[in-house]
Design a protein around this nucleic acid. Structure first.
Lengths: 142, 142
DNA sequence: CAAACGTGCCGATGAACATCCGCGCTCCTT
DNA sequence: AAGGAGCGCGGATGTTCATCGGCACGTTTG
């Protein structure tokens, strides 16, 4: 499973070196290539099978117009990103969506990874103060 | 599966080059020809088998008058568009339905593709701002 | 017969991509 | 503390190939 946080940088050609740990997990438990999709303020990377399962699960639920738009946005903004020399190439469209400049944070989310603009990630983390986080941890007994 | 977004142009003879990735998927997992039907503000392209499955699934559900009209419209406005030299020919009727001028956007929708007038697609995308999109993504956990 | 339409073929070009390379940092080992 | 190995970073380069548009031929239509 994907866990941990990694600071990386995107080079001028929109390439990102996947952290070695992430690469190992991807090779050993899933299967490249990585499907990169838009997510909540960031990008999400799934193995193809897991991406499709997620997609079809949402699709199978009762239809609403909002969900139609959501599914279009997800599949329209998904790209197959093969690993070349340990790196993936992020398409311009996705780079802009996630507002990625140079510094990137990759977060392991068990079955997926999240790819964040470092700046945005800092903001997102800062929006939940440690005290509140502690409370939630206590609440869920983790 | 079909994913991603592609900017293309229709030539003066109403032909569209299918993107190479789309062609590859169509050949490897489905089978040409492409059945092109009217869809929501755009055209939809299915492999014949998937088109038929979709049609029969709707047909098999309990009858309502609206559904009768829908099925008529779908099959009346469907055309078989064979791949010739990597291109498909869009019939005038469908071109006009989708208000396609010159610039075209093709969107992968997993089991089908959507063929949009570029202008109309821009409008459709603009109608869901990123913040709202993020919220829905978070809600569905993608 | 004329015009419109569909189709095959081909060429140019320009952008996207793959591959290869070397550097330097960091972290672990000894 | 010194050495080494792994890993992240960036650049350069060349080549492939996808897309676009034109042209010419055949066929159908009116």
């Amino acid at each position: 499973m994907f866990i941990g946080t990694f600071d990386l940088s995107m080079d001028p050609k929109n390439r990102i070196h996947l952290p070695a740990k992430v690469r190992d997990v991807l090779h050993s438990v899933y299967e490249p290539p990585l499907i990169v999709t838009v997510s909540d303020r960031c990008l999400a990377g799934y193995a193809a099978r897991q991406w499709l399962e997620k997609y079809e699960k949402i699709e199978s639920e009762p239809y609403t117009p909002e969900k139609g738009d959501l599914l279009r946005a997800i599949s329209a903004n998904a790209e197959e990103c093969p690993l070349k020399n340990g790196r993936i190439l992020i398409p311009t469209r996705l780079k802009e969506y996630a507002q990625i400049k140079r510094d990137v944070v990759i977060v392991g989310r068990v079955k997926k990874i999240e790819i964040w603009s470092a700046e945005r990630y800092r903001e997102a983390v800062a929006s939940t103060p440690p005290s509140e986080l502690s409370e939630r941890i206590r609440e869920y007994g983790f």
